[in-house]
Nucleic acid binder design. Sequence first.
DNA 1: CGGCAGCGATACCCGGCCGGTATGGATACC
DNA 2: GGTATCCATACCGGCCGGGTATCGCTGCCG
Lengths: 277, 277
Amino acid sequence: METRELRYFVAVAEELNFGRAAERLGIAQPPLSRAIAQLEHRLGVALLIRTSRKVSLTGAGEVLLAEGRAILGAVAAAERRTRAAAADRPSLVVAAKAGSSGEVLAKLLDAYAVEPGAVPVDVLLCESNTHVPLLDGRADVALLHEPYDPTTGLDVEVLSTEGQVAVVQAAHPLAGRSQLRVADVSDLPDLARWPRRDGTYPDGSGVEVRNLTQLFQLIELGRAVAVLPEVVRTGLAEGLVAIPVVDAPQVTTVIAWPPHSRSRALADLVRVATGFS
Amino acid sequence: METRELRYFVAVAEELNFGRAAERLGIAQPPLSRAIAQLEHRLGVALLIRTSRKVSLTGAGEVLLAEGRAILGAVAAAERRTRAAAADRPSLVVAAKAGSSGEVLAKLLDAYAVEPGAVPVDVLLCESNTHVPLLDGRADVALLHEPYDPTTGLDVEVLSTEGQVAVVQAAHPLAGRSQLRVADVSDLPDLARWPRRDGTYPDGSGVEVRNLTQLFQLIELGRAVAVLPEVVRTGLAEGLVAIPVVDAPQVTTVIAWPPHSRSRALADLVRVATGFS
DNA sequence: CGGCAGCGATACCCGGCCGGTATGGATACC
DNA sequence: GGTATCCATACCGGCCGGGTATCGCTGCCG
């Protein structure tokens, strides 16, 4: 199985339309049809069900779609890491969610910078899906928050564990309470929608929210309520109040990196990160 | 980067000899040279250093070798899993080290078999390197022993933790002791050599040992001493004695599976495995 | 009910690249 | 200095990947 075939199949499986997939791939539709047919023939497995109006995935197709995405990510990562290894100036790229882990990150970078043998560190700020750059090689290490970010397939060290707080408008009826339970906030109308792990938004009404700044603005306008890790208390705006949610699941901040990493700089950074907690 | 290029590069990087690599790949040497040169050109990176007598890897080459092996394994796994998903009869393959985890495995299989919705389970017995079939898709789940087996890149649940015992010939001077320390056995001459994780043997004298039966035979002949997990006590031969090594690292038996697995049967098996401990 | 639009499959052609053989150039060994 | 080894270069042929043109099927709509 060649990566070309995988690229083609993933494109078709995602578009569920040969024409659009071909366009996305920058080739014509007939060669794409043929390539998929050949792939199916060689595997001896039907991957797609074509009615002449609609394309859908078989069970085997869904498996290959998931595996294929992972492989294509790994190939992209291999290219990036190979080039990075050839660059004479070694460096590290840290992926972090913009806003949420700012302080942890700053402390980490400061502590690492004074290490003997420290290399330059670049920071890649993500709106969400912080794990993705790790999988395709754009980053060497990432700060993630369990259980929100997926960590399957990554090596992980726990940095800290904290509770969660509900963030509400100062004028909100709940604002005076000293603590809450999940039940208190779960039945409030959900006026904001977060992107899912695949980047799409759940159906329903409400504004599509992409980062914390947007969310805080909505809360300040009384258009949303959010349950977030405790750290958000630092630097909370005037019109917002944070109330502990005592029975919300604990959030753990972890430092994650791809398996099989053998870089000295990465090992140092992880050691520094786990050193102070 | 195509998988063909990766296969070629990995072959050359492992053989460090274009002629042998070409033979292994079943092609002639000149096309192989050209393919590697093209790969280097496209990446813009030198992967190999050729003197006309010797081939060696650059730093970037070592990175690509590691990444390439992982990718090729993932591709093989994708093909196997896609075919398995298309087979109407779903099944699970469990990889385990022959001999070492026999009882745990039997109990696990029995407990799983009575589960509602249990699928047929095949067992793949390995001499060592139990994690490999997991990476290339020959197995869906494996029983591993930390810290002996690498688990990077795998999802893991701990099943049990146990101490280690020294196994010696009954006539051995240490045989009467009720407990030992690592120091007591570490300076004994090492008459047996185990394969490393990559399947090669360390240099030195001594018989190359591949499995527990061979090892026990050597011990019985007074030609070796081994420090092993406690379970080996069950069913130990007459002429052998097991003595706890109190300061040896704990051995944990884990059940491991590839990340991103979404199989119902696998989830059931893991749940059953972690249920009894 | 028939024309039409959308979509995938088929037919056919062309060019590039992959693989083969032959050979050259460099180096270590005798 | 001759030779064996080993990688690179040169050149050629066949296959395959990609392009255009077209067909067949199926909903949709007037």
